[in-house]
Design a protein around this nucleic acid. Sequence first.
RNA 1: GGCCCCAUCGUCUAGUGGCCUAGGACGCUGGCCUUUCACGCCGGAAACACGGGUUCGAACCCCGUUGGGGUCACCA
Length: 471
Amino acid sequence: MTVVTRFAPSPTGYLHIGGARTALFNWLFARHHQGKFLLRIEDTDRKRSSQDAVEAIYEGLTWLELDWDGEAVSQFSCVDRHRQVALSLLEQGKAYRCYCSKQELTEMREAARAAGKPWKYDGRWRDREPADAPDGVEPVIRLKAPLEGETVITDLVQGEVRVANETLDDMILLRADGTPTYMLAVVVDDHDMAVSHVIRGDDHLTNASRQYQLYVALGWDIPEFAHIPLIHGPDGAKLSKRHGALGVDAYRDQGFLPAAVRNYLLRLGWAHGDEEIISTAQAIEWFNLESIGRSASRFDITKLTNLNGHYIRHGDDGELARMIAPTIADNRGKDLNDGEMDLLTRAMHGLKGRAKNINELSDSAQFYFNSSPLEFTDKARAQLDEAGCSHLSNLTSSLDKLASWEAETIEAHIRAYGDQHDPAIKLGKIAQPLRAALSGSTVSPPIFDVMALLGKDETLVRIKDALNTQA
RNA sequence: GGCCCCAUCGUCUAGUGGCCUAGGACGCUGGCCUUUCACGCCGGAAACACGGGUUCGAACCCCGUUGGGGUCACCA
């Protein structure tokens, strides 16, 4: 049997981090089994669906590099099929028309609540003659669900889940306006799309029992279910907008790398021994449903940040440079030419170990491309005091005469200058003013590397400009 | 409230009856490295919710309690 999974978000908002993990797990499982990973947009509720949200879902998945097989399916495009299925159930006597109005239902619900009783549709139209139908009420079609017995689902993550059938009511299949409900649509589509494993959030667990009964009524094979625990916010409740958990695009904007997000999401609820850093190839090889935990986990941005730092530190210099080049060009108002692109790439080595996200990386690279005189931070200016400037001016002429402009020779030269000036001097006394003059700040990659990268001319220009600014 | 699910350091987790005086990671923290900041390295504090069973033996199995969560729409 080929494995077919699907990610079926409703386009009512952006792709949330929880949805992203569901998509990841489905994708991983399909790829592990060399099966298919399908995408279906659950847009049967026309009022709540929007094309913007559909686009956001595509973009989010694309950014996460989770590719789906074939075209994304719009559930709404299958309405005729859904309706036909509902009608066939009606013909077979496995479903019936219910003429309760929405208002009637609301009243029943409120009465039940007032009486402190659990609410459940009482099936009053289950066996009633259509002739009794009141005028002016368009009926809904409900499933004639079993009244007794037990529905048992063997969930691949949660294990055996038993629900007494008497607690399940006759769910609506077709609304009064003839459109299918989610319950009908998922079952029909999952069947038609030959989905073998339904991997989705735990919040669907109670739906599974009802859907099970629909499969039975239809005489269809029941797919495997795997309900994965939800992701909670720091307060322990289901992650939602109020936790500030926006779309995955927000994480992109905050400078997170898709690989880091995937790695983090994978480890949230799934583990392979003590492995923490897991490449996507490795994840595909290792991923399984059995190792998914059964309890909910909290979203921890700090750990994601740490992982992101790891992926940046180990990232490819060229790729990182390409990622931040547009921002740097924007900030200085001019695109980077080939030489500058090369400089940026070579600068990555010293920069990437210091950044936790892409935005920090581009901020930290910016100084290489700002034109002198630089703007100085307060701390940098403090380094350019009398003593600092005196070292800088002493250095300018001798630096100019250096035959070779490599980090090592520059360092040797400056250390020699320091020893000569004062054998007890700390290198920092000279390095910090240099750093301030060259980068505008007190934090940068090793300063001799910076000088080498900047080149002799630019280095001397920046030092002189710094001296002039302070004069 | 009914139904359902869950329960190991603050957080993510390893652990499937003896290998556990419970391991890893993030965070916190002491130190080392060091031209700054990071990285890296070494060390530390920090958990089996509680109560009963079962067993020679329980973090692991069973029951209960407590706590947390999910779900109860002509939304998905």
